[in-house]
């Protein structure tokens, strides 16, 4: 449990910068999620914190101590690997005890702490099993218990849920979050799954091309994305190309005149979240007729693709209230607030 600071941390492989100057300050006990598409440098960043990758530049501090050039075995980080990386020739109990043995603790204490870690993940009954005799979810929890047993300064989770099926993922996600809160562990999790990120994080960091694009809460990222990339990566949205013609005025490539948030004049993209578009609402800044081209029924919501002009088509999500839904070919009127339209300069 400690504060973690990354100061201008970089990793270059030849000409290619996998991580280009990442600066982060993670508070004691905070749950931070690194979010980004594959190849954005999030896993490399995590591995640099663990000491498995040596940075080309910058510093890493854990609890105020510079650990930049310490080998992994002399840092006190607990990592859960994407593949779990359990020791296949050791039992569950031996796996969990391994880190404690390396710390040269007394036998009796090792036993107590290993059992306690297994109790945290509710696997005491499986202590004598070998990893291959466990299900994926159980293996995942052994990996977590093994990392928790050493009482790490920082818990590092590398896509910990990506090998679980959807239902289990949701359960384990909540379990990890609860354990983390209960133990007050400083935690960094890497994921490309936004939903996963949104449910567990205190703070999110969106990365792309080795750089941090935005740091903030779930709400910040969704409602005030810092740039076009974040707007596209976090949540779903429609991008309409065009230009800002005046304060709060946007003209699409298809010639539609729309009201939006303020933006710098010139070529830009207008970004619309699908659930902010309505059917025939009152007191809206924008009213645009359109034709339904595609409908998908998703249960709680309906998704429509609506053609507004030959060049402009938008995605709309309507709550499923049980009334007659628009069908393909219907002529409808879409309405939305100017605040729903975010503009990003090209």
């Amino acid at each position: 449990m400690a504060r973690l600071e990354l100061i201008d941390l970089s990793k270059r492989y030849g000409e290619h910068a996998a991580v280009a100057g990442v600066t982060l300050d993670v508070a004691d006990g905070e749950f931070l999620v690194l979010l980004g598409p594959s190849g954005c440098g999030k896993t490399t960043t995590l591995r640099m914190i663990a000491g498995l990758v040596e940075p080309s530049d910058g510093r890493t501090q854990i609890g105020g101590t510079d650990v930049t050039y310490l080998p992994p075995w002399r840092r006190n980080t607990g990592m859960v690997f994407q593949s779990y990386a359990l020791f296949p020739h050791m039992t569950v109990a031996e796996n969990v005890a391994f880190g404690l043995e390396m710390r040269k603790l007394a036998k009796a204490e090792i036993e107590v702490r290993a059992r306690e870690a297994l109790r945290l993940v509710r696997l005491e009954a499986f202590a004598g099993r070998l990893p291959r005799q466990l299900s994926g979810g159980q293996q995942q929890r052994v990996a977590l218990a093994r990392a928790l047993a050493i009482r790490p300064d920082v818990l590092l989770l590398d896509e910990p849920l990506s090998n679980l099926d959807a239902k289990l993922r949701e359960e384990v996600r909540i379990e990890i979050r609860e354990l983390q809160g209960q133990l007050g562990l400083t935690t960094i999790m890497v994921t490309h799954d936004q939903e996963e990120a949104l449910t567990v994080a205190d703070r999110l960091v969106v990365m792309a091309e080795g750089e941090i694009r935005q740091i903030g809460s779930q709400r910040d990222l969704y409602e005030r994305p810092a740039d076009r990339f974040v707007a596209g990566f976090v949540g779903r949205s429609t991008f309409l190309d065009g230009r800002v013609t005046g304060p709060g005025e946007f003209e699409t490539a298809g010639g539609l005149q729309l009201k939006c948030r303020d933006g710098a004049p010139g070529a830009a993209a207008l970004v619309l979240r699908p659930e902010r578009l309505h059917l025939g609402g009152a007191n809206m800044d924008n009213r645009v007729p359109g034709k339904v081209e595609f409908v998908s029924y998703l249960g709680p919501v309906l998704e429509l693709h609506v053609r507004l002009s030959p060049a402009d088509r938008v995605l709309v999500q309507l709550p499923n209230r049980g009334d007659a839904a628009p069908a393909v070919g219907d002529e409808i009127e879409l309405t939305w607030h100017r605040d729903a339209g975010m503009v990003f300069a090209e």
Binding site: P72, W73, T77, M79, F81, A85, F98, M102, R146, I150
Partner: peptide, 18 residues
């Protein structure tokens, strides 16, 4: 042998000989 198994050992405090 999965390389990450070796990394897990380092992460848990094992030196290369260990």
């Amino acid at each position: 042998i999965d390389r990450s198994v070796e990394e897990a050992a380092f992460n848990l405090g094992a030196t290369p000989p260990q």
